[in-house]
Design a protein around this nucleic acid. Structure first.
Lengths: 225, 225, 225, 225
DNA sequence: CATGAATGAGGGTTCATTCAT
DNA sequence: GATGAATGAACCCTCATTCAT
């Protein structure tokens, strides 16, 4: 194999990209270092210049993903011009994870991502993100209390709980989406669930009816064609 | 090793028992067929008389567990003498999985059970149970509507969603319980979460304030000593 | 590869034999499990039915070798018909390790055995043997004291020390033997050393001049042709 | 890493120092070039400017150590003012290797040094030293013969043999010292061995009783507190 | 002289599964 | 039904060494 030299961070990113793609597609346990090596196109030993172990690679992948997700959220949460409801809706709707996980990703990969062999990574990503996203969302909720659109006694706790709820909803949605071929009735079910879900969040926060559109019904309807 | 002959179903149950214990304690991937064999006290080849593969064993374990959980629920749901609220509270509170998962199980095992290496099995158990428990709970909700204690437009969907919500709560609770040693403040957080959680369910169902005690605050308070 | 079934102990012995030969010839570190497998003619996984690890195999090899050496010694030491001097001479002269290590073994293997890459195993064999041989020899020395042919204050300690001395001498001798091609003068040196060595042991034990022939001069002279 | 230029020999010495320390502490095989590089604070490729291979480095380390040991001995042996017995006692007692190996070195390092994984290097050092030290000691023995305090027929051979004997004794002593924690009775054993050992050497050389104190009983007694 | 990314053969080990007995 | 020796692909990882810069 001809030797191709690259800068440290460039190669490291190649590893992260390859790993992320394969972990998504086949699951962490099911992805061999060999497969990653092959995708990056380097020799066996090269891996260990960049990561101490396979597990360290997983950590890095997770950290990168949740880091990116949080960065987006942070930008929204810190925007001084938006009101709390707009922020909340956008934090989730525009969340890279949402779009990325559901719309843009090709179906076979999506199918793999939510395969049960993959749950572990997904869960760790969720938890890792929640830890940072929780306080961020909590701040939005507090803003909402000041703006008198939210009414809740537990703004801090709700930040994290809301994010977890979102993550679970996302998984449920993915599940249903992937089952549509077999169960056409899922189409209607999904739209019903969107309503229930948004409604639930409103009750959660004591927000005005119809204000929360964490999951965008319109976008979904379009997607369901 | 002396050859011990047993009835087909007896031996099969021994396999299921051993597998369940080990899967709980160490996770599915981390449990080798060898370990199961050793626990059952039987030779290598014997395994394949009972299960086609390791994966088939997992399926059987999951099926058995969710079958048991559902049987308990069914008995409660079908009881003609209870009102809906009592049924709902008891379905979850007395749910074998709940007690089993949190109170009776020794800490190290609980720690293992909720380790992220184990999530896959837990998730599959939850999904498997939810599929059957959903309609059961839906029936209770409908009874509640007839009794005018619940007020919701989506009784069918809520059955399943409620169960999933419960499962997520259970995981979150386990997480917090296991972290108490390191973070004493979790003690207070857990009790706060119980309130939030019960409150959430009430809003979910449009139930009277204070009626829902899916998670029993008193029991938890005692447990937290 | 066609499957060949053997009895547990037979196969285990095949492993021990192959390992011993290869460890001797190339050293422990330099011998790959693969090489052993190839020599035994079985598949990779088979190894781990018999030994928990490569290190466990080394332990077993060492134990077997020193076990055999000691068994021979024990037979001599326990012989009620021999006097102490005869026993002492025979314990070492007839010691399997001695003959095996120096006379019968083909030169290239002998060369390898005493290669410095191999010292570790040799040393462990020596120590392992010494631990058991020490008390055995001590008993002979005590018999010698009773027979008034040995005169020493430390019969117990001398048992072990004598064995170690012997082992060192054996190594030195091997060294010289292997150097004979390059240094013809070693021939004379070896014979001189035999004398010195036997003399040393006599002084060690306070034995009569000429009584000790731990290393057999005659045999060596013959060998040196 | 900033590039630091050093004089050839200075850097080479840094390599030797690092290697010696690590070889002692972890054994040759167990020490990776990487670890040495890290300790020197220099990049991968640099190593091969100074040593052709890892083995060449070991050779250099051994050569340097035995060179130093011999230099000390030589100074004593060539001292025209000392008598043979004083020289002999001092050659060993003051031998850097002795003090270094037993008294000054911290226990964990000593434990490592005499670990069986390390024997190969130790043995090579001993042999390498013995080759040069032999004739030196032989000269002292001959001086002793002239001074009529030694009485032996083989002064030349005894030089080397004496050194080897010393080396073996040193290893045995190290072994016992390291076992003292577990076996308190070793304390007495060590002192007994010192006596036996010195006595042995006297008989070896035909030296007056009590003249030889190659191992210093007093120093050891103090050390054993 | 020095760097450090890259090599790649090879290491020991695991384990679900097969099959002759 | 049960045994357990045997399989072999695949696993993760190590490390002395090379070489473009």
């Amino acid at each position: 194999m001809p030797r191709v030299l690259k800068e440290y961070n460039e190669r490291k990113n190649e590893f992260l990209n390859a790993a992320q793609e394969l972990f998504y597609a086949k699951g962490y346990e099911q992805t061999s270092i060999n497969a990653i090596l092959e995708m990056v196109g380097v020799a066996k030993g090269t891996f260990y210049h960049y990561f101490k172990s396979k597990e360290a690679l997983l950590d890095a992948v997770i950290e990168r993903i949740s880091g990116r997700a949080v960065a987006e959220m942070k930008a929204i949460a810190d925007n001084p011009e938006m009101d709390a409801i707009a922020k909340l809706n956008q934090v989730f709707q525009s969340s890279g994870s949402w779009k990325a996980a559901h719309m843009a990703i090709p179906i076979p990969i999506r199918r793999a991502l939510y395969n049960h062999k993959n749950i572990m990574m997904l869960r760790r990503m969720t938890l890792s993100t929640a830890r940072i996203a929780g306080p961020l969302i909590a701040k939005i909720i507090q803003q909402g209390k000041r703006e008198r659109v939210f009414d809740t006694e537990f703004p801090e706790d709700l930040g994290e709980l809301l994010y977890m709820q979102f993550a679970n909803w996302r998984e449920k949605l993915a599940d249903l989406l992937l089952g549509i071929d077999k169960h056409p009735e899922y189409r209607a079910k999904i739209l019903r669930y969107v309503d229930i879900y948004n409604d639930t969040i409103e009750r959660f926060l004591g927000a005005p009816k119809g204000s929360i559109m964490i999951s965008d019904r319109k976008a979904l309807e379009n997607f369901l064609e």
